[in-house]
Design a protein around this nucleic acid. Structure first.
Lengths: 144, 144
DNA sequence: CACGATGCTTGATTGCGTCAACTATTTATT
DNA sequence: AATAAATAGTTGACGCAATCAAGCATCGTG
């Protein structure tokens, strides 16, 4: 007997997406991080931090879902490479606001381009399927 | 001027998929690894190793895309927990064949169930969209 | 003003991944 | 058949980055 009919479509869809992600060799995120000589966490920080924004380190710890003490080290290294900078928050002198430098904006954009390159299985889809996939995922992201 | 029209659908689709993945807090893979008290690499090994299969460690190094010496440590820890076992290859005495134990098969299945749980944005899609997404991804996986 | 809470940093520890060297075995060369 | 080259896996040294506990400075509240 086949089990396929029992699996709900969302679960199967996600399993297939995972299969695509895990079939990438080398694995994308650490590979791109290595290209830019960054740790995966530093990569994620640059990925998430928006140009023009200035976020307290505690907020970054939230988005990276890691310890605040960890953020200190990541920010140290990124600041040493002048990709981000610490600014004082005039409203609370305990807070350091983290913002991208001009170099950081450029590097962030290159990182995003590399990460956003679709894997071959997606790139090989028909034009119709690509558009369909995009539209469904737009609804997924916009909706929540 | 909008840039949206310039971006090809596959790239945008993949960007949206990444946004879904990176918005998960805590990040799925390390979180599930922690649940099972495994390193992310050990998790991936169990995820990839199929019940009934017996693969040489060099093959595992290939699928994990890491150094062979790294596989030794990962296999050591998994073997100590009796989730996998080393077997001798009768055809080549240098080779150790790695296979899941009965416990390993069970744990692997639980890991896969946890990883395959769709994130909320996917789970919140309409039934039609879920099926559409599944069908497109099936074609992506089957085709390559 | 005193107290607890918050934001960030520091230092110690740990663990995982990488590299280079080594042993054992197999395959290729002559 | 003998030797050399290649391969599979292990070991040990090293480094980086994440975690935890503690500490300092600052803020808010009663």
């Amino acid at each position: 007997m086949s089990t396929r009919a029992r699996v709900d479509p969302a679960t199967e869809a996600w399993s297939l997406a995972l299969e695509i992600v895990f079939s990438e060799k080398p694995p994308r995120v650490p590979a791109v991080a290595a290209e830019f000589d960054l740790s995966p966490m530093a990569l994620k920080l640059l990925y998430k931090l928006e140009p023009g924004a200035a976020e307290p380190m505690s907020a970054l710890a939230g988005t990276l879902f890691c310890d605040a003490s960890n953020v200190t080290g990541i920010v140290d290294r990124l600041e040493a490479r002048e990709l981000i900078e610490r600014r004082d928050d005039p409203r609370d002198r305990r807070v350091k606001l983290i913002a991208l430098t001009d170099d950081g904006v450029v590097v962030r954009e290159r990182i995003r381009e590399r990460l956003h390159e679709p894997p071959e299985q997606i790139a090989a889809l028909s034009s119709d399927d690509k558009r369909t996939l995009r539209d469904v995922l737009r609804r997924a992201v916009d909706c929540c």
